[in-house]
Simulated scan of single mutants.
Amino acid sequence: MTGSREQLGRSAGGAARRGWRRVVLAAVLVLAALTVPGSAVSSPQAVLVEVRRAQAVDLTPDVVWILAVGSDARPGEDMTRVRGDALQLVGLDTRTGAAASIGVPRDSYVPIPGFGSDRVNAALTYGGPQLLARTVGDLVGIEPDYVVVTRFPFFEDMVDDIGGIEVGNPRAFSDPDLKPLGFEAGRIRLDGYGAMAFSRIRKGLAGGDFDRSANQQRVLRGIHAAIAERADRPGFLERGVATVLRHTATDASPVELFRLAQAVAQVDRRRITTCVVPGALGQVGEASVVLPYVAVARRLGDAARQDATLPRGC
Rank of each mutant, 00 (worst) to 15 (best):
S288F: 14
I272W: 14
C275G: 13
V277I: 15
V255L: 15
A265H: 02
C275I: 05
G282D: 06
G240H: 01
I272E: 14
R298Q: 12
D251N: 12
V267Y: 06
Q262L: 15
E286F: 10
S288W: 12
L260Q: 03
G282K: 04
P278I: 02
Q266N: 08
A303C: 01
R299V: 05
V267D: 03
G301R: 00
E256R: 06
A287E: 10
T248I: 03
T248W: 01
I272S: 07
V241Y: 14
V296R: 12
V294I: 11
V276P: 10
I272L: 15
T273H: 13
L291D: 09
V289I: 15
L260F: 15
A287R: 10
F258Q: 09
Y293H: 13
G240F: 00
C275P: 06
R270N: 14
L300Q: 00
A261G: 11
A261D: 09
L257C: 14
Q266C: 01
R271A: 07
D251S: 13
D302V: 02
V296D: 11
A295K: 06
V244D: 02
L281E: 06
H247E: 05
S288R: 13
C275R: 08
V276F: 08
T250N: 03
G279L: 07
H247C: 01
L257K: 11
G301W: 06
Y293F: 14
R271F: 12
G282F: 00
T248H: 03
V289S: 13
P278V: 02
Q283A: 05
R246N: 05
V277A: 10
A265I: 01
G279K: 05
P254F: 07
G279Q: 08
T273P: 06
I272T: 13
H247G: 02
C275V: 12
V289L: 15
A280Q: 14
R271W: 09
L281R: 10
S253I: 02
L281S: 10
V294Q: 11
A252L: 12
V264M: 02
R299M: 12
T243D: 01
L260I: 04
G285N: 10
L281V: 04
V264W: 01
A297R: 04
V289K: 12
R271I: 10
V294M: 07
V277E: 06
A242G: 00
V290R: 07
R298A: 12
P278F: 01
